[in-house]
């Protein structure tokens, strides 16, 4: 069983929901990332989403754009991100790590090279924002052969028949984008999300995570009431951005712990 599947199975057995925080690798500098990953786990994260810095993050709002720009100032590329994952794996063999990013850095590395390096680094899944299933068949096959889960997005605008088609290609879990907009946009509408989930659940047995627009513990708790996983990105990046360097790890761990506690209260 993959680390992602094992994590969801254990959570389900304990009647708990997965907490998936996101940080951009290399933000605010390359040395910060591995300690941040451990702090996220210490705060109660179940799966880590690690953003690959990209010069043109079309699907991201200002907060994650700035994180990308800070990382790019240090020249952080996909190879460096994979090295961070390998370093994290030296002391954490259990927490799944999912790469989140855009197609071009992967294209530049080449699909075969990426799959081999990602697997060797201890990566578990990959979510490529601008690789819809229609354009990523060959890449997805290579990921599957390397034991990497290809995670796909569904959106409020996805038509019903397309939900089925995307779900057929999905591995690991489904990432439901809770609102029309970029990352870190306005707060999500819980009723709208709740109304969409039954159709997604009917199309797949995979766990369903919800992300975009989750900014506080209470919203996370409510989303946890209807989904299998809660993804929080911009709010954590904001914590990194606004913290004094010495307080950064504590602030991030405490924020995640607060969300964890709210999720576990249910």
């Amino acid at each position: 069983m993959s680390r992602i599947a094992a994590t969801f199975a254990a959570l389900k057995a304990a009647n708990r929901k997965a907490l998936i925080p996101f940080v951009t690798a290399g933000d605010p500098d390359p040395a910060a990332t591995v300690p941040l990953m451990h702090a996220l786990v210490a705060g109660g994260a179940d799966i880590l989403e690690l953003g690959v810095p990209f010069s043109d993050p079309m699907a991201d709002g200002p907060t994650i754009q700035r994180a990308s720009e800070r990382a790019l100032k240090h020249g952080v590329g996909l190879k460096d991100v994979l090295a961070m994952v390998a370093e994290f794996r030296q002391t954490n063999g259990d927490t799944p790590v999912v790469l989140m990013g855009y197609a071009n850095p992967i294209e530049a590395m080449g699909w075969d090279g990426f799959c081999a390096s990602a697997k060797a680094a201890g990566m578990d899944g990959v979510l490529t924002v601008d690789y819809p299933p229609e354009e990523s068949g060959e890449f997805a096959a290579k990921c599957a052969a390397a034991g990497l889960d290809n995670i796909y997005l569904l959106a409020p605008t996805t038509p019903a028949e397309r939900v089925d088609a995307v779900a057929r290609h999905a591995r690991g879990f489904i990432y439901y984008v809770s609102l029309k907009g970029v990352t870190g946009a306005a707060t999500l509408d819980l009723g709208e999300v709740a109304a969409r989930l039954p159709a997604i659940r009917a199309a797949t047995g995979l766990p369903v995570g919800v992300g975009f627009g989750i900014r506080d513990a209470d919203t996370a708790r409510q989303v946890g009431g209807i989904a299998d996983a809660v993804v929080i990105g911009s709010r954590i990046v904001q914590e990194i951005e606004q913290s004094e360097p010495a307080a950064r790890l504590d602030n991030v761990r405490n924020f995640v712990a607060g969300v964890r506690a709210a999720l576990d209260r249910g």
Binding site: M58, A59, A103, V129, D130, Y131, P132, E134, E135, Y152, L153, L154, A155, P156, T157, T158, P159, R162, V166, V177, K180, G181
Partner: peptide, 20 residues
């Protein structure tokens, strides 16, 4: 039909825009 000129072109966007 899917917007390809040989290996070029295509639809490389986030899911939210696919329907549009």
């Amino acid at each position: 039909a899917r917007g390809h000129f040989g290996p070029y072109g295509g639809v490389f966007v986030a899911e939210t825009l696919m329907a549009a």
